[in-house]
Design a protein around this nucleic acid. Structure first.
Lengths: 137, 137
DNA sequence: ACAACACACTACAAATTGTAGTGTATTAAC
DNA sequence: GTTAATACACTACAATTTGTAGTGTGTTGT
């Protein structure tokens, strides 16, 4: 899975993908689809070439986020992970990366950010730490 | 400050900058320097053109991470933030972004990642949580 | 046999980053 | 005071990523 870029000025899946890639992923997380089906869906919003969609979908296969399954004449595409699992995995990677890259420097600010979003998070984290300490002893 | 890309397959400052940019930032976080001084430092490791260094340094000014200060004939460059502050700010942005972009989906995995850190960080976490709770009451 | 379709291969454009040439203006030296 | 070195602006090109799309090929269904 070579997705390893997080654009934190973007929104939603655009943080991990280009805009067209993101739209395609979204459609395929809904359900498995052929290139044609994806192209027709996208075309409803804005005219888009079949080959354009094909190229991008194949690139996503190359990146390891989509899989191709031959079915009769054509192929069907589906993500290798659910959307939730994808986001979870990437978030974990990013968080680990921040922590073991910059350690103590960032941890306070991560907590600040957590608190701003949801106060109950601190309790959850406290519990986890308590549990961790019990496990160790 | 238009740094908004986090490459989580890279190491250190390369997560935020290109490799050459990162080396230059590192040198300027040590101390304010002229283009010539930066170029000569880098040149010790590997031959590098003066204009190359100049271009990249000016681009970093354009991105808002460096400032230029005229001094006599030439200019001296320095980061607008300390290295620590830079990393803190970016980390906070990334964390907030993850949390309010993907909400509950990522929280547990962020906590998981936090659990995996070393003991001293865990202690820091506990302290920080305690402190945050006191602030509330 | 032919037309429609699925797909491979190829290519180009914008943006980002590293690279570096040429030209200009100011400073320093003789 | 003319020349030479220096600092810098301007410009350009290559590789990579992402969006875009043309052409060509082989299979299918009529």
């Amino acid at each position: 899975m070579d997705i390893n870029n997080f654009k934190y000025d973007e929104v939603g899946l655009n943080r991990f993908f280009g805009p067209l890639e993101a739209k395609i992923m979204e459609l395929l997380w809904e359900q498995e689809r052929s290139i044609k089906e994806v192209q027709q869906r996208l075309d409803q919003d804005k005219p888009i070439n079949f080959n354009t969609v094909m190229t991008v979908m194949n690139r996503l296969v190359g990146k390891g986020v989509l899989k191709k399954r031959i079915q009769g004449r054509g192929s069907l595409f589906h993500p290798v992970q659910s959307k939730e699992d994808f986001i979870k995995d990437q978030s974990k990677k990013i968080t680990e990366n921040l922590l073991d890259g910059f350690g103590g420097v960032v941890i306070n600010h991560m907590l600040d950010a957590m608190e701003e979003v949801d106060q109950t998070l601190l309790d959850k984290l406290e519990q986890k730490i308590k549990q961790l300490k019990e496990d160790k002893s």
